[in-house]
């Protein structure tokens, strides 16, 4: 613990309508968790749809899952977990006032996000190339699809990975903003709530991928 360099100037970070730093910190944290609930419900509703249709058309979903390359999904899972680790570490480093290292950790996190997106990009373009478009645009002749409604599987695939990818991009944007502020010296052992907030968001993105990976690539 290196909380010894506290000075009272830090309380200048407390907004006017809060009494003290504790109240502000607790409020901020609660707000973030509330927002995460909306994320869970949003993704969860698609998962509910996925679950229902998977149950109705197991063979079709199995055919769809076989078209995906689990190795890419596997690599992406590892990349995201590693980025989650660096994100968590960055907060801990800021709490210990090791700002430079924290900035490094944040930069690595952004890099991991970028790697994830690049792999995703190649996955998607490959699928397009093969004719696996979503829904009714799926090229039945080119893909030799056995099930007439295979497009629905890819509908789910693109919706889920697309929405997730969008979150990765938003997360990368937010972390870039954090990185700039970290380098500028805005964060320290008495003020890190934005880092923690974005961190929780980033972990949620990771968490969702942890479920998407077996759901889309492995189960069939």
């Amino acid at each position: 613990m290196s909380t010894d360099n506290i000075t009272h100037t830090h309380s200048a970070h407390v907004s006017h309508h809060f009494k003290d730093a504790t109240q502000e910190y607790d409020s901020g944290k609660q707000g973030i968790w509330l927002f995460m609930v909306t994320e869970i419900l949003m993704f969860g509703a698609v998962l509910v749809g996925y679950g229902i249709f998977h149950h109705l058309y197991p063979a079709m979903f199995s055919e769809g899952a076989k078209q995906l390359d689990w190795k890419l999904g596997f690599i992406n899972t590892l990349v995201l977990i590693f980025s989650s680790f660096t994100m968590a570490i960055s907060i801990q480093l800021i709490q210990r006032n090791q700002i430079k290292k924290a900035a490094m950790a944040l930069a690595v996190t952004i890099l991991c996000g970028a790697i994830f997106m690049v792999i995703k990009y190649f996955e998607w373009t490959h699928k397009f190339h093969m004719g696996f478009y979503p829904g009714r645009f799926l090229d039945m002749a080119k893909t030799h699809a056995e099930h007439a409604n295979l497009g629905m599987y890819f509908g789910f695939y693109y919706c889920m990975t697309g929405l997730h990818g969008l979150h990765v991009l938003i997360g990368m944007g937010l972390i870039t903003w954090l990185l700039i502020r970290t380098i500028r010296g805005d964060f320290h052992s008495q003020y890190w709530i934005p880092v923690e907030g974005v961190g929780i968001f980033w972990h949620i993105v990771d968490l969702i991928w942890i479920f998407l990976f077996p759901l889309l690539y492995l189960v069939g």
Binding site: G49, I52, F53, L56, Y57, M60, Y133, P134, G135, R136, F137, N149, G151, M152, F154, G155, F156, Y158, C159
Partner: peptide
């Protein structure tokens, strides 16, 4: 997404509901 890309989740033509 249904309207733009015809993903089929709510479209009976693709087994959607």
């Amino acid at each position: 997404a249904e309207k733009l890309f015809g993903v089929g989740i709510f479209d009976p033509a693709l087994g959607g509901d």
